[in-house]
Amino acid sequence: MKINNIHHIAIIVGNYEQSKRFYSELLGFTIIRELYRAERDSYKLDLAVNGLYQIELFSFPETKSRASFPEAKGLRHLAFAVDNVAEWIDYLRANKVDVQDIRIDETTGRRFAFFNDPDGQPLELYENS
Rank of each mutant, 00 (worst) to 15 (best):
S42Q: 15
P70G: 12
F58K: 00
V85F: 06
K96T: 06
V85I: 08
V82G: 01
L123I: 05
A81F: 11
A94V: 00
E34P: 02
G51F: 06
Q54Y: 03
T108C: 09
T30L: 07
D119S: 02
D119V: 07
F60V: 07
V97A: 02
H7L: 08
Q54I: 14
D101N: 05
N95F: 00
I55E: 10
E56D: 15
Q54E: 15
E124C: 01
A67I: 15
I55M: 12
K44C: 04
S68K: 14
T30Y: 06
R103Y: 09
G14Q: 14
A10S: 11
H8R: 06
I55L: 13
S24G: 01
F80P: 03
F80I: 11
L47W: 01
A86C: 02
Y91L: 05
P70N: 11
R103C: 14
L125V: 08
L75T: 13
K20G: 03
L52E: 15
D117L: 00
N84A: 06
E39H: 05
I6K: 01
I6S: 00
N15P: 07
F112R: 04
F80M: 05
A48E: 13
F114C: 08
K44P: 01
H7T: 06
V49S: 09
Y23N: 11
S24T: 02
L35T: 10
M1C: 09
F115R: 05
S19I: 00
N84F: 02
D41G: 15
Y91P: 03
L52Q: 11
D90T: 15
S19H: 05
I31D: 00
N5F: 07
Q18T: 13
E87D: 13
I11A: 08
I31R: 04
L26Y: 04
L75H: 09
L47I: 01
P61W: 02
F115K: 08
D119P: 00
M1D: 10
L35N: 11
E17A: 13
D98T: 07
G51E: 10
E34C: 08
I32E: 14
S19N: 03
A79L: 09
D105S: 12
S42M: 15
Q100S: 14
P122G: 02
F69M: 13
V85A: 11
E25S: 09
L92Y: 02
V85M: 09
F115S: 10
A79T: 10
L92W: 05
E106T: 12
T107H: 07
P122R: 00
I11H: 07
Y43V: 00
I55K: 03
V13R: 11
K96A: 07
P61D: 05
N4M: 05
K20I: 03
D41W: 04
K73L: 14
I89Q: 08
I104C: 05
I104H: 06
D90V: 14
N4H: 03
L123C: 08
L26V: 04
G51Y: 12
G109I: 03
F29E: 04
G74Y: 12
